[in-house]
Design a protein around this nucleic acid. Structure first.
Lengths: 194, 194
DNA sequence: TTTATAATATGATGATCGTAATATATTATA
DNA sequence: TATAATATATTACGATCATCATATTATAAA
């Protein structure tokens, strides 16, 4: 067996990482297979020994990014001093709607960036997105103790305000939207059935 | 002067209408110039006697759709029986978050569909999107009497929940998100400075 | 009806895409 | 060190894109 144990898996992960970056920077359709392979330090030829086709790469990259993002949200709230009486969900909202997340789309959540584009893709990819949203909603429900609908609305507020904060050119308005959206998102839990 | 007065303008509007439909159905990058011209009943060759290039078409189509959408929102709220004591802004929220708007993306607001893609385009197109958002925010502010930030958060809730309601496959959850987002959007005005 | 011209169609160009076939390079084992 | 198997690179193919050059059609005016 040439090549060390697990070599191919590592390369495959490098391709996924490159794709995750490219898709969030430039969108799915604008990110070509050759450019993604170059981002992983390879040429385009070997792509099809790792993935069936581009659609499979998109599907796996979406799952990859979503589970990574949820993991990060989960651990980031744990790391922060949990001595306070502030609910854990508030820290997730604060991170999601932070200027850092707004200004580093290529590291963050795919939903505000790619959900519009995925909605125009195949039914398979739409299913991946729907499943990802269910994971986010379940995660928010788990952290906040809220029902599915309430968690969905909170996610809506986070996604919508991040999208607008990124699109509005006026930096003051952008930051104001983020900050007031934080307040609103946290308020939802106090005005809804648990 | 061959061809009747205003003929070219009519054709130009047909191209814009076709592009507006195509972009909202399939996205900007997925909508080719030939397919848009076919949608307007023409062949691709004449395109460049109407528009400098595709980017100019995108910019004009965005402005076209946004002003049409705001006009429709404005008049639809006027037509509805204004005898009730219900605030005008509530009817706008109700229409924006209606199942009809969710299920007919190709007729509706471009923001949930295209803002992700436009954020990846040229600075010029990003400026168009930013200007469009300012128009929406000013419109909401005008109708509701709220400040810029509050209007921006309400727009965030509408955009985010429409995006999620379209992406979530479970129809019950989708409708629940829309309905509870309506409640939340209307609540914002009661908990914010005017 | 003829003519001049504006509007549209046809066809071509170079670039890039996704994908595949084939050749080359790499390395664990013998 | 030689070998066999595997991973990667090179090259190619057909399709489609945005754009442009040129030909053709349609119509208002003469």
């Amino acid at each position: 067996m040439p090549y060390p144990e697990g070599h191919k898996l590592k390369v495959r992960n490098r391709i996924l990482t490159s794709a995750a970056d490219a898709f969030r920077r430039n969108g799915i359709r604008e990110s070509s297979v050759p450019s993604i392979m170059k981002g992983a330090g390879l040429t385009h030829g070997g792509f099809y020994s790792h993935f069936e086709n581009k659609e499979e790469l998109v599907a796996e990259t979406c799952n990859f990014v979503v589970s990574n993002t949820i993991d990060e949200l989960r651990t980031s709230t744990r790391n922060e001093h949990s001595d306070k009486e502030e609910p854990e969900i508030n820290r997730i909202i604060d991170f999601y709607l932070s200027p850092y997340h707004r200004d580093h789309a290529e590291e963050g959540c795919i939903v505000p960036i790619l959900s519009g584009e995925i909605a125009q893709c195949s039914a398979d990819l739409q299913g991946i997105l729907s499943h990802a949203l269910n994971q986010y909603i379940a995660f928010i429900g788990e952290i906040s103790g809220s029902d599915e609908t309430t968690s969905g609305v909170v996610l809506s507020i986070m996604v919508g305000s991040l999208l607008l904060a990124r699109s509005v050119k006026d930096p003051v308005l952008s930051t104001n939207i983020l900050n007031q959206a934080k307040v609103q998102a946290k308020t939802v839990f106090n005005s809804s059935p648990k």
